[in-house]
C-alpha cells in the first residue's frame, strides 16, 4: 500500500507527467464547477425563501461563505505544498504553492468585500471589528506578504523557498491569531453581534449554500490545475517538450 502511494506520489511530482495528466482533470472539474456554481447561485438568488430577520440581503451568503471557506483552505494548501517542497525538494509543489497565492488573495478579498456590503444592511455599518472580519483581514495581509515576497526575490527558486517558510510561519499562527482576535473583540464589545453566529438554517437555504461551496471548491481545483500547468511552462521553458507545448499555444 505504502509502496503504491510512494510510486503514485513520485509520478505526480514529475512536471511532465502532471502536465499531461491534469489536462482532462481540469477540463471536467472546470465544467462541473461552472454547472454547480451557476445552479447554486440561480437557486440562491431567485428561489431560496426570504430570511425572516435579514430579508433578501442574506442572499450574499451564497458567495460570502464559500469565498471565506476557500480563502482559508487555500492558505493551508499553500503551507502544505510549501512544506512538501521544503522537505522532499519537489519543484511541482512549489509551483502549486505559488499559483495558489493570487487565488487565495482574491478569495480573501471577495469574502471581505461581500462581508462589508452585507454588514451595511444588517448591522448598519460597512465595517465592524468582529472576530471573523478581523481574522479575514489578517489573512489577506498574510497573502499580501507571500505575494510581495515572491515578487521581491530575484531568483524564482529562492522566492519559492522563502515563501514556503513564511507560509509555515503563517499557518502556525492562524489559530493563535483567531484566538487573540476573539479575545480582543469580546473584551471591548458587548456581545451584540451574537446573531451572526450560525443560526440553524432552513434546508431550502442550506442546499444552495452547500452546492455553492462545492462549486467554489471545484472551481479552485480546476483553476489550480490550469495555473500550475502555465507555471510549469514558464519555469521549465528550457526543456524541449515545454518549448513544443508553447509552440502549440499559438495554434489554438
Amino acid at each position: 500500500m505504502w509502496q503504491l502511494f510512494v510510486r503514485w506520489f513520485h509520478k505526480w511530482s514529475s512536471p511532465k507527467w502532471f502536465y499531461e495528466m491534469s489536462k482532462p482533470w481540469s477540463f471536467w472539474l472546470g465544467w462541473a464547477a461552472l454547472l454547480i456554481t451557476t445552479t447554486a447561485i440561480i437557486w440562491g438568488l431567485g428561489f431560496a425563501p426570504v430570511e425572516r430577520l435579514q430579508g433578501n440581503s442574506y442572499r450574499i451568503i451564497f458567495i460570502h461563505v464559500p469565498s471565506a471557506f476557500l480563502s482559508e483552505a487555500i492558505y493551508v494548501t499553500i503551507a502544505i505544498a510549501g512544506a512538501i517542497g521544503l522537505i522532499w525538494r519537489i519543484k511541482l509543489a512549489y509551483y502549486v504553492a505559488k499559483i495558489c497565492v493570487p487565488l487565495g488573495m482574491s478569495m480573501a478579498f471577495l469574502a471581505l468585500a461581500t462581508g462589508a456590503i452585507w454588514g451595511k444592511p444588517t448591522w448598519g455599518h460597512w465595517w465592524v471589528w468582529d472576530m471573523r472580519i478581523t481574522s479575514m483581514l489578517i489573512l489577506l495581509l498574510l497573502y499580501i506578504g507571500l505575494w510581495a515576497l515572491h515578487n521581491a526575490m530575484e531568483r524564482p527558486e529562492s522566492g519559492d523557498r522563502a515563501a514556503a517558510i513564511l507560509a509555515l510561519v503563517g499557518v502556525v499562527n492562524i489559530p493563535v491569531i483567531k484566538f487573540s482576535v476573539n479575545l480582543v473583540t469580546t473584551l471591548h464589545q458587548p456581545a451584540t453581534l451574537k446573531f451572526t453566529e450560525k443560526a440553524p438554517m432552513h434546508i431550502s437555504m442550506l442546499i444552495p449554500l452547500l452546492l455553492s461551496i462545492l462549486g467554489f471548491y471545484l472551481a479552485f481545483l480546476a483553476l489550480m490545475l490550469v495555473r500550475s500547468r502555465i507555471e510549469i511552462l514558464r519555469r521549465e521553458r528550457k526543456a524541449k517538450w515545454v518549448q513544443q507545448e508553447i509552440e502549440q499555444l499559438g495554434n489554438r
Partner: peptide, 24 residues
C-alpha cells in the same frame, strides 16, 4: 429590488463576478 436590499445584493454579486472573471 430584492425587497429594498437590491443595491447590496447586486453590488456584492457584481464584485464576485469581477473577481472570478479576472481569475478565469
Amino acid at each position: 429590488a430584492m425587497g429594498g436590499h437590491g443595491l447590496y445584493v447586486w453590488l456584492s454579486y457584481a464584485i464576485a463576478a469581477v473577481v472570478i472573471g479576472y481569475n478565469l
